[in-house]
Structures are given as structure tokens and as C-alpha cells.
Simulated scan of single mutants.
Amino acid sequence: MRISNLRKESSERSDDFNWAKKGLLASENFYFESIEGCNQNNVNVVTHILERARVDIDTTLDQNIEDVYNLIINLEGEDHILRKVNFANCFSANLNYVLYCDESETVLLYEFTSPTKLTHLSTFNSYSEFSHWIASIKGWKSSKAYRESPDLPNFDKKLRAAGTAWPTNIDCFFCDLENNPIGIIEFQNAKNTGVLEHCNNDYLLCKMSYLNQWGYTNYHDDIRRWTSQEILRVQSDLRFIIITWSQNSNDFQIKELEKVSIPFFPLKNGKMDWDYQNRYKAVMNKYVNQNKPENLHNEISKNGKTYNLIKEDNRIVQTVNEPPLSYGNKTFPSLYYVRKEKVSNNREVLLQYFNNIVR
């Protein structure tokens, strides 16, 4: 088969109005890139870094691997592929490249074994078959409903309908002028809470709750989200920068993450102890929504546990923090920062603050 007409499609919907990201692109000290897909498996390891493009396919013609390589390079740019390959190497992985055709629902999986060498790994005969492959490398299935958008690419809609979506993207990573990755950037759009008022720890600590259909209280938290980000930071050994912004504001926050102490929910007879987990989340919910009183802080400190992720021999392992937990020892459930800044009504200085933090 012969592929042609490579073009980019994305499930990411916020880049067009992300003034914070556009402001950083003016830097003369760093290169900035994004990654379309990053797979984490059920033992907290990044296994695949993926890029993708939609193509046309003619099954009556043949094509060699060098031609495919050149088509991808012409689309992406040689330096961009180099930086993405180097980024994948931070996770002891190669950069995978996925080419897909809506008309035939064929998916071609390639791998950059080096910035200049491309290898064909697999051909999938349907989007459903490729969705099942994603499920196999994840080893787990999300229980949350997908946030659908009518302008999602057809590829993403079909993968979701088949049961497993395209892996989550990485907002941004940045490299020095020699194309070596330095850090990862997470952009947070705080359009619903206010930029300067937004606090990641409130949501880690289960600020939101709702009654389910059986009348029981469920707690909405960002524990899985920040566990995922912590996996990126720990496994890659890269710096992790958080930038909070809004399209409706000139305010911003910029922080460098030091570590995350994650609420620990032990197993009971080999299964999740849901009663313990709900009690833990209920106390955290009250703690946040009652303005963090001392008595609830003490209850979490005395009765709760947290864990940290560390890398040992290229494995990601958990170290459990036993009570009493404390902010001073950085064991209380929280995100901890090397440095953080809040800037009011002055988006023009974001790049200056970024340079000051990462220099």
C-alpha cells in the first residue's frame, strides 16, 4: 500500500486560545513541543510515547519504509522529530508514530528506533482492532465517561466507541538549544474558578462531592490525574512546571512541582477497602470545604496514610508514609512545590517568570 497526504488532527481542543503557551513560544532559550499520546499502564509506568497523522491510502501501489520516513519528516520537521525521540528516550521508550485512514479504517504503527530510522511494527485492519491494542498496553480501563465534543476527529470517536480512547496527550515539554529535554509543562485552564484562587490541593483533597443514583455520596477528586503527572515527573527525571491561566484573564500562576504525596488506600483481603476509602475522602472533603480546620487536619494526620513514587532500578515503586502525616515532612496529602508565583493582570511577564524559574 502507498500512503499520502499526511495531515495533523488532534483531540486537544484548548491550544487555539492558550495565550500562556503562545507566550512561551517566543522564548529564544528553549524549544517547546507537545506529545499527542502518552500511555501509562496498570503498574504506573509510561510504556509508549506516540505521535499520529491522518493519511490517504492506495492499496494498489507499493511504498518502501524510506518513503514513509520522509513523509513524516516533511510533515513534522527533522528537529521536531529529534526532540520527540529524545523525550521518549527519557522514559526508556522509542517514539511511536501512528498513521490512520478514515476511509478504510486502517491503522499503521511505526517506531523511530533513532531520529533517522523508522521501523514498521504492525498493521491494524480496523479502528476497533487498534482500540483493543491500546487497551492491551494500558492493562486497565477507565470507569469515567469520556467528555465528548462534536468536533472530535472521527478517529477518536471510533476508538472511544470501541471501548478504549487514544492515550492522553502531554501539553508541552521543553528542550535546551541542543534539543535535550529539560522539563514538562502542565497548562491548567482555570476559567471556572479564577486563576489566582485556583488551588490544586483543594481538588486533590476531594473538594467536590455529589449524590449518586443510590443516594450515597461520591467524591470527585484529582488523585488519579496527579498520580499520572507524578509518574511522568519521576520516571523521566525531568522538571515539572505548572502554569495556571484563563482565556478570560491576564492573571497567571507558575509553579515547579517538587513531589506529590498521594492519599493511600490499602487493600482488604486483596480488594479495595471501599469503606476506608470513602471515610478518608469524606474527611478530606470536609477539611477543604470547612477552610482546613485544625481538628480535621489532625484527624487526617493521625488516621491517614500517603505514598510517594520513586524510581529504583528504572522501576516506579511506592513508599508509604505512616501517620502522623505533616506538611513539614511533606507527607500530608498534597502537591509540594520548589517555587510558586502568582501574578495579577500582567500576562506579558509570563516568559520572564518562566525563565527565572527554570534557569
Rank of each mutant, 00 (worst) to 15 (best):
Y127Q: 01
S128H: 04
E129I: 01
E129M: 02
F130D: 00
F130Y: 15
S131C: 03
S131T: 08
S131W: 08
H132E: 11
H132N: 10
I134W: 06
A135D: 10
S136L: 05
S136I: 08
S136E: 13
S136D: 03
I137S: 06
I137K: 09
K138H: 14
W140F: 15
W140P: 00
K141C: 01
K144M: 03
K144N: 12
Y146N: 06
Y146C: 05
R147E: 12
R147W: 10
E148V: 10
E148Y: 12
E148F: 14
S149Y: 14
S149F: 11
S149C: 09
P150H: 04
P150Y: 01
D151G: 02
D151A: 11
L152Q: 08
L152P: 00
P153D: 01
N154D: 09
K157N: 11
A161L: 15
A162S: 13
G163Y: 10
G163L: 09
T164N: 08
T164M: 12
A165R: 14
A165L: 06
A165S: 14
A165T: 12
P167G: 09
N169A: 12
I170G: 08
I170D: 04
I170T: 13
D171I: 06
D171H: 12
F173H: 05
F173C: 07
F174N: 03
C175L: 01
L177D: 00
E178D: 03
E178W: 00
E178F: 00
N179F: 03
P181N: 04
P181H: 08
G183K: 11
G183H: 05
G183T: 11
G183W: 07
F187Y: 15
F187W: 11
K191V: 15
K191C: 13
N192C: 11
N192E: 14
T193P: 00
T193A: 13
G194C: 02
V195K: 10
L196Q: 09
E197D: 14
E197Y: 03
E197R: 09
H198V: 08
C199V: 14
N201L: 05
N201F: 05
N201T: 11
N201C: 13
D202R: 10
D202I: 08
Y203K: 06
Y203F: 15
L204C: 05
L205A: 10
L205R: 11
L205Q: 13
C206Q: 01
C206K: 04
K207E: 09
M208C: 12
M208Q: 11
S209C: 07
Y210I: 04
Y210Q: 12
N212A: 07
W214Q: 08
W214A: 09
W214V: 08
G215A: 04
G215C: 04
T217N: 07
T217M: 14
Y219W: 04
H220A: 14
H220W: 04
D222G: 03
I223C: 02
R225C: 07
R225P: 01
T227H: 09
T227V: 13
T227P: 01
S228K: 14
